[in-house]
Amino acid sequence: MSGPQSVDRALAVLDAVADAPGPLSAKALARRVGCSLSTVYHLLGPLTARGYVVRGPRGYGPGPRVPALHRAVRRHLDAGAEVAALLPQLRRATGGEAYFTAYRDGRITVVDTTAPLADTAHPFPPGPETRAHATAHGKALLAGLERGARRRYLADHGMARFTERTITDEERFEAELSVVRDRGLAVSVGEADPAYTCLAVPLPHLPGRALSVSLPLEAFRRRRDETGTLLTLAAASLAAAR
């Protein structure tokens, strides 16, 4: 095995290790990736040598190189020291988890968050955002694109229904984004997860970037206007710091 297929399978192994709730044996990885055990061992060799995975007594898990990749992503997507300091402040002020999100090359990514990394039940973890049309940060970022780019994004990623509130009609979604542009604030009330609401503001000084906060529905009902104001002020303070 060589060339692109080898690369693709190596990345599939890395994805399987990353997505698993705990260590995986080589046999389990072979089943998940859909290849032979000997192929998995062939792929695990360089992944382990380079520090992308580690082997423990219960199987393979993410290696020490992975946090360095996350730091590199944050650096390349402008999530520097100012953002790292601002997100905890925003969390304390709003009582909700805070996020820094980016659009680049046709993908939306949750780059940084105050939500505990061990909280696997949290609905907006770091990484690729596959529900952008149903989230406030996705709406804030998509609203800033030209319509052609937005249509390509929706064609590539779809508009799946996650709850009864999810907008799945493109024209209705366009109307929603028009409101986002007018207000400078995006809101998603139980559209991606029925128990959560999120609010987001774009960062004009950082095109393709957004700040957002998620709250349980009850907290949102009590603090909607206040949270939106705090987000706007946070975006302004970040712009001033740049």
Rank of each mutant, 00 (worst) to 15 (best):
Val54Asp: 04
Cys35Pro: 04
Ser2Val: 04
Pro116Asn: 08
Pro64Cys: 00
Lys27Asp: 15
Arg209Gly: 09
Ser188Gly: 05
Ala118Trp: 14
Val187Tyr: 08
His70Ser: 06
Gly59Ala: 00
Arg71Asp: 13
Ala149Tyr: 06
Arg222Phe: 03
Arg150Phe: 03
Ala16Val: 03
Pro57Thr: 04
Leu211Asp: 03
Asp193Tyr: 09
Pro126Ser: 12
Thr232Trp: 11
Leu29Met: 12
Pro57Glu: 09
Gly45Phe: 11
Pro4Ala: 05
Arg131Thr: 14
Ala155Tyr: 05
Pro126Lys: 10
Ala210Lys: 10
Pro88Glu: 10
Gly106Cys: 13
Leu14Tyr: 00
Asp112Leu: 14
Val110Trp: 04
Glu129Ser: 12
Arg150Met: 13
Val201Gly: 11
Pro116Met: 03
Val111Asp: 06
Tyr60Leu: 02
Ala175Glu: 15
His70Gln: 10
Val110Lys: 02
Gly138Gln: 07
Val33Ala: 01
Leu233Thr: 12
Tyr196Cys: 00
Leu29Trp: 08
Val13Tyr: 06
Arg91Val: 01
Ala239Met: 02
Pro67Val: 02
Gln5Asn: 06
Leu154Arg: 05
Phe220Leu: 02
Leu217Gln: 09
Gly228Met: 03
Val13Leu: 07
Leu177Ser: 02
Pro216Arg: 15
Ala20Lys: 10
Ser214Phe: 04
Gly228Arg: 05
Ala186Gly: 07
Leu177Gln: 02
Ser38Val: 12
Ser6Ile: 01
